[in-house]
Design a protein around this nucleic acid. Structure first.
Length: 217
DNA sequence: GAAACGATTATCT
DNA sequence: GATAATCGTTTCA
């Protein structure tokens, strides 16, 4: 069964050939699609984070680290995938941005399930326990499990099956919330996390506006 | 070889 | 909100 979802246009490579923070913002509202094991999964991207280059101390490819076997895909062509294992357990999906040989990427942190929920539930079930729909793809490790994304797709071009990102309706600026990134210990104040305002599908709530930030010194 | 560190999640209270 | 689980990657000896 084909559907409108599958006919959406993949975002072109040129879309990714920009600074990571621009790509991260513009990926909101786009659609993540996989076809794995004969099952389609489709979700609307509602939360992203940018890792902007070697000068970004929170990046896996920060200057002090350089190129390693794990982060090699971050140095690849814009529009390819960087898939890494987190905490030795979870896979996390990034879209590589900017230009080749410059390590920058956008972490996809949460999507709103749109199609293929049955497959997502089956993939996310543990010990017979099926999580609530809200928890199917709320978080970078959860969404890769729901969409059957693994390290086998590291370096995969996101314009081609079985893993693609498809264009969605543009999200106006008033619907984008920007705040600091999650789960990092360096560059903790950089405003590089982008969320769809009011979405109940994001991984963690957004800090209240006006949250006092540590004074610079 | 050994040790430390996670771009997290599940499961408590 | 706090904490344990869990193991690949990286670094250091």
């Amino acid at each position: 069964m084909s559907s409108g979802a599958i006919r959406r246009t993949p975002l072109p490579r040129a879309f990714y050939a920009r600074p990571a923070e621009e790509v991260a913002r513009d990926l909101l509202g786009a659609f993540l699609h996989t076809r794995q094991g004969g099952a389609d999964a489709l979700g609307r991207i509602v939360e992203t984070e940018a890792y902007v280059g070697p000068h970004d101390a929170a990046s896996h490819a920060a200057e002090r680290i350089g190129r390693t076997s794990r982060n090699a895909a971050m140095f690849g062509a814009p529009g390819s995938a960087y898939v890494y294992r987190s905490y030795g357990v979870h896979w996390c999906l990034n879209a590589v941005t900017d230009r080749a040989d410059f390590p920058a990427a956008v972490l996809i942190r949460a999507v709103e399930p749109v199609r293929g929920l049955a497959a997502m539930r089956a993939r996310r079930a543990r010990g017979g326990r099926v999580p609530a729909d809200r928890d199917l793809a709320r978080g970078p490790g959860r969404l890769t499990q729901a969409f059957a994304i693994t390290g086998a797709l590291d370096g995969h071009e996101l314009v081609a099956p079985p893993l693609r990102i498809l264009a969605g309706a543009p999200v106006p600026g008033r619907d984008v919330v920007v705040c600091p990134r999650v789960g990092i210990s360096r560059a903790v104040d950089w405003p590089l996390r982008f969320c769809l305002r009011g979405s109940s599908w994001i991984s963690r709530s957004v800090p209240a506006a006006g949250t006092p930030r540590a004074p610079e010194r």
